[in-house]
């Protein structure tokens, strides 16, 4: 049992390392993990003066919005790129579970993107001289871990979606702005039409944002973070099932690399 766990951990670690090495050569990573959060922060913070509490909420909204973009373009594109490189079949038909390989790659992409987004946001925050309210740093760290877990699970789910279509690149571009508008981050849910206000509740990142908003202005409320964790578990489960179905169908029809 221990040996299997160690082997699984080693496979996930190798997948993570491989993904991160590949990301160093991809210009889109710089766009979504550096340029976009910097631009959004300047735009949002430059429009009006922010109190320390508002600054925390604004930075949280921008970081999580950038995380969505990064998830779509990096973690979400893992299997699409594998197909492009001609290595998809080897990745999903090896001795180890395809889900494990995808998990490692998605985690690697998410961690790499998160580091870029946080670092570039920190530079802008310093440049703009934001005064920050960080009343519960420990809980913010927990929230960050939930974001990474959520990004990883969402990335796996999107990667499976892009596996069953030949238009993955077009879908990537198409998925960005709907979530910018309906994700409940920079545009709060109460600014949406009533009949659309249920949509943000489906996005785990929006619940993390609600947790940060609560923490920055008062006591710790764990319920939003709990919902984010539950949604993350749901994404992960759905991704594992979708991947299994997609790979099985691809192998049966002989179309794994040909969609």
């Amino acid at each position: 049992m221990t040996e299997r766990l160690l082997a699984g951990g080693w496979v996930a670690w190798m997948a993570l390392r491989a993904e991160q090495q590949g990301m160093r050569t991809r210009p889109m990573v710089v766009v979504v993990a550096v340029i976009q959060p910097v631009a959004l922060l300047f735009v949002v913070a430059g429009t009006r003066d922010l109190t320390p509490g508002e600054a925390t909420v604004t930075v949280s909204a921008v970081v999580l919005t950038a995380m969505w973009s990064a998830t779509v373009w990096t973690a979400g594109g893992v299997l699409r790129r594998e197909r492009g490189y001609g290595t998809l079949a080897r990745s999903v038909t090896s001795l180890y579970s395809p889900s494990l390989v995808l998990f490692g790659r998605s985690l690697g992409a998410t961690v790499y993107s998160a580091v870029g987004i946080l670092a570039s946001s920190a530079v802008v925050v310093a440049l703009l001289g934001f005064r920050f309210a960080v009343p519960h740093p420990g809980w913010l760290l927990v929230a960050l871990l939930v974001v990474v877990a959520s990004g990883t699970a969402l990335g796996m789910l999107l990667a499976c979606l892009f596996l069953v279509t030949r238009h993955g690149l077009a879908w990537s571009g198409a998925l960005i702005y709907p979530v910018f508008i309906l994700g409940g981050l920079l545009i709060p849910p109460d600014a949406l039409p009533v009949w659309l206000r249920w949509v943000p509740a489906l996005l785990s990142l929006r619940w993390v944002h609600e947790f940060v908003v609560a923490v920055s202005g008062g006591p710790v409320r764990l319920a939003p973070l709990g919902v984010a964790v539950a949604l993350t578990a749901g994404y992960l489960l759905l991704a594992v099932v979708c991947l299994r179905v997609a790979v099985d169908a691809g192998r049966r029809k002989g179309t794994l690399e040909l969609v």
Binding site: V44, Y177, F180, I181, L186, I187, A191
Partner: peptide, 10 residues
Amino acid sequence: LFFTLLGGVL
């Protein structure tokens, strides 16, 4: 639409 709504929100 996003930038228009964001302008109103901010």
